[in-house]
Nucleic acid binder design. Sequence first.
DNA 1: CCAAAAGTGTTTACATTACACCCATGC
DNA 2: GCATGGGTGTAATGTAAACACTTTTGG
Lengths: 230, 230
Amino acid sequence: MAKHTHPDRLLLAVDCIIIGFLNGQLNLLVTRRDQEPRLGEWSLMGGLVVKGESIDAAAARVTHELTGLENVYLEQFQAFGDVGRTEEERTVSLAYYALVNQESATSQLSEHHDARWVSIRDVPALVFDHNKMVEAALVRLRYRATHEPVAFALLPKKFTLTQLQSLYEAIFDRPIDPGNFRRRLRKMDYLERQNEKDVTTSRKGSWYYTYNAEVYEEMKAAGEEFLLKP
Amino acid sequence: MAKHTHPDRLLLAVDCIIIGFLNGQLNLLVTRRDQEPRLGEWSLMGGLVVKGESIDAAAARVTHELTGLENVYLEQFQAFGDVGRTEEERTVSLAYYALVNQESATSQLSEHHDARWVSIRDVPALVFDHNKMVEAALVRLRYRATHEPVAFALLPKKFTLTQLQSLYEAIFDRPIDPGNFRRRLRKMDYLERQNEKDVTTSRKGSWYYTYNAEVYEEMKAAGEEFLLKP
DNA sequence: CCAAAAGTGTTTACATTACACCCATGC
DNA sequence: GCATGGGTGTAATGTAAACACTTTTGG
């Protein structure tokens, strides 16, 4: 691949679609651009891939810079490389989406950036092709959430099945039958019921559950599939 | 994204997993590298993204250079950007897979490259992380083929349902029941039976079909889903 | 008429849907 | 005791898998 005479070099960036979940809705973390062009406009959090840094590491760094969080769920889903996309310097951008626990992320929001959570259903105009990136991220998230248990990254460690249902309803943007939803969950041994109830939302209280990734890995290794259709 | 002081620049390439189908099996088009490092070793066809060229255009150009074909089905599916992946210069590569009609492609194979079709079940050791790319391409192809009618890109314009079944068996690497397969196809109005039979494979002869993309787009617009589970 | 591939039909098992119903408890 | 969200059960419908069956025609 490497031409040894005058190779064409360009800028390579990552942009992160950072997604949280609060009060029954999915939210997107956006910032104001801190440089030209488009200084001050709403934008995804991004950054250049620097020397000696893998692209996944760049995405983790960018997410960390804004949220303060480590070990965030990140998936690279598309490269955006149309010619005039960033207006000035030719930049190709690798888009990643991140699933974070919104409470933790909010409490650690870096004050160096002017950041804000917006509803995923009401994303403002973003710079460049960032709105397209958000759309593509949601498509990929919906696919991933049906085939793998990634949604738990958006919830606190302990959560109720009602919260989980509400999350899936937000991801797929449609109501889900509680009976059918729960029946499917009942088969998932990696959901572990705690001896503790959330009593803030109802008289009866609802059991807290935790997600056990090890158990899931075992089931996966045994060939069993995760599937939660919308 | 653009730092105006000393931005980090690196090489950006595309690598194409060019897939064909012949005699009941999927095949991969590989070439011998024509430059250092790893001169002469088996490799995917790749090339640098050049100035003023979109990444999709780069993939189309690279595919065209080797196969002579235009308007090839191409899907970008993953960026590979680990630090030492290309050994010398830091290169990030965008992987695309291409679905081509193997007969047409073979007849137009560029003589400037030392190219060869190999069975997808028996891919030789390729340079760098190219074997990983092939694996990832197959995963994506399998997903795409169940949800969208892309498989037709691998077949001639006219094909029999037996050929189509054989193609799906190759993609999913498992036998398919002819009865059930045909029943599902019967509902797909974008498969149009021609007044012509292929009489080379059986006494009875089997009808030729064509794929009508316009009809599919209409059905898609009407909210109907394509789904061909493996 | 028979072999061999093309193509059809039918039964069965299973999963999904829709919805009615019961449970627990603070007020 | 009743309103409220939590949680369960079940009959009906739809789909997919397995496989037996019919069709066609060159030799």
